[in-house]
């Protein structure tokens, strides 16, 4: 399953979904899609096919840049924690190496200090847009407690290991040096 709106589309300009699998499991989905009326539009399908032709080179760059940013953030004194499968001390790093072709373009940092400190960092970033969604060529940052998980209670967020100081970063295709500079000026 994919929200094709993210990496498969890759340019923040289309909304689509995809389901891949066996004929036996996908066959019966056809009638539901038909009668729910949730078909992709032909123009969107064509745009998504266009995007797939560059998927591999885009993802390769997302992976490399996210790894560099994760390593830089690990060394930063104002960052208390970095969540990225490509880091050797990430809890599931061995599984990531076995299961994934790369470690992805998504990482989450936890800003040291109080919740307000994370908000201040988020607001000071210039290249990272504060927005939901991910996987586009432009970098996107998101405060997890105010976007995707806003509907959960504070206790439920804690239970799920989500803190108020987390910033989830979707690393874009900008020059990675500029992205690291932007993070460093915001964390200063």
């Amino acid at each position: 399953m994919h929200s094709a709106t993210k990496y498969l589309g890759g340019h923040s300009d289309l909304t689509a979904g995809a389901m891949m699998g066996s004929k036996a499991s996908l066959g019966p989905v056809w009638s539901w899609r038909k009668n729910l009326g949730s078909m992709i539009a032909p123009a969107t399908a064509s745009l998504l096919s266009r995007s797939l032709r560059t998927l591999v080179v885009r993802v390769r760059q997302h992976n490399a840049a996210a790894q560099q940013i994760a390593e830089a953030m690990t060394r930063h004194p104002k960052v208390s924690r970095v969540f990225y499968p490509g880091l050797a001390d990430f809890p599931a790093h061995a599984l990531a190496k076995k299961q994934m072709h790369g470690f992805g373009g998504m990482l989450t940092i936890e800003v040291a200090g109080r919740r307000e400190d994370a908000t201040r960092v988020a607001d000071r970033l210039k290249l990272f847009a504060l927005a939901p969604s991910l996987g586009g060529r432009r970098i996107i940052k998101k405060k997890t407690c105010t976007t995707t998980h806003h509907e959960l209670t504070p206790a439920e967020r804690t239970r799920r290991g989500i803190s108020d100081s987390m910033l989830r970063l979707s690393v874009g295709l900008e020059a990675v040096e500029d992205l690291i500079d932007d993070l460093e000026q915001a964390l200063r």
């Binding site: 399953m1 929200s3 909304t15 979904g17 389901m19 996908l26 729910l36 992709i40």
Partner: peptide, 15 residues
Amino acid sequence: EMAWAFCSGMAAETA
């Protein structure tokens, strides 16, 4: 073996 495309990721999940 096959794939279905949808108008959104949530549409795919709902189906």
